[in-house]
Amino acid sequence: MEILYSIVVAPFVDMWTSPVFFSEVVISGVLTGVMYSLVALGFVLIFKASGVFNFAQGAMVLFAALTLVGLMEHGVPVWLALILTMLVMVALAIAIERLMLRPLVNQEHIILFMATIGLTFFLEGLGELMWGSNVKMLDVGIPSESFEVGGILLNEFDLYAAAIGAALVTVLAVFFHKTSVGRALRAVADDHQAALSVGIPLKTIWIIVWSVAGIVAMVAGIMWGAKSGVQFSLSLIALKALPVLILGGFTSVPGAIVGGLIIGVGEKVAEIYWGPLVGGAIENWFAYMLALAFLLFRPQGLFGERIIERV
């Protein structure tokens, strides 16, 4: 009875009696969720346009952050380092398309997935080979003062992160829906062969998508790197983004955002209110279980395209 009470009732009583603390937890969850979304966004972009489940997204985040920090350590000013990193990511996209995707065209999804895991190893090795494996601090001039609003403690940095995330999503949405390249991207995502037959160059589209994903990875790398230092564990946030991805649906940009928020808030609330009951550190797997629970009701994720199967 007591156990039942501590699981079912006590956490809600806690939430009700100290609403300020609860809203702090929720807000910090939302802000972490935005960071997850940033990583998940890169996955969605590539999956939509080429059907590749790009496991290397996390490694791309690490690689971009390492490149940026490495350049800045060599005395390159921030704005120039940003542009150079962007160019590096575009070059990487071209190399991936040429050397990896083109020879593997028309292969099964699982083969392409494996190839991206190979790419993960390659990028992690390359990044650390070029820039060393020490933890580096990344400072691009985002302020991180804490302040209070209505008794709730907020960090300026998290707000900037949320703002940048929102801006990125808006830009991507406009890019996808208003430009001709965006329209071509959506056509490719819909049907490769039909897109080819109306004259959309598939290879160029893939390069563009991988470049955009690379730049999204760079933004995610900057935010995560500024928050917790640039180090090897940065590539592991890919594992944090995966539940976001299946929750929102592999093919949906809004899904990545909403999924990120649900996972971020759910994870924080569960860790703080239910975590102590089972010994804590449940953040690692809770997101997966949450996503799994959603999937049982919607197998394609919240916003994913309906899976239609025919014989």
Partner: peptide, 20 residues
């Protein structure tokens, strides 16, 4: 160690391309 990781990743991609 880094070179090893890199070559390992490269080899996997290579083998997938040569014989999926």
């Amino acid at each position: 160690k880094h070179l090893e990781v890199m070559i390992f990743g490269g080899l996997i991609i290579y083998f997938l391309i040569v014989e999926p």
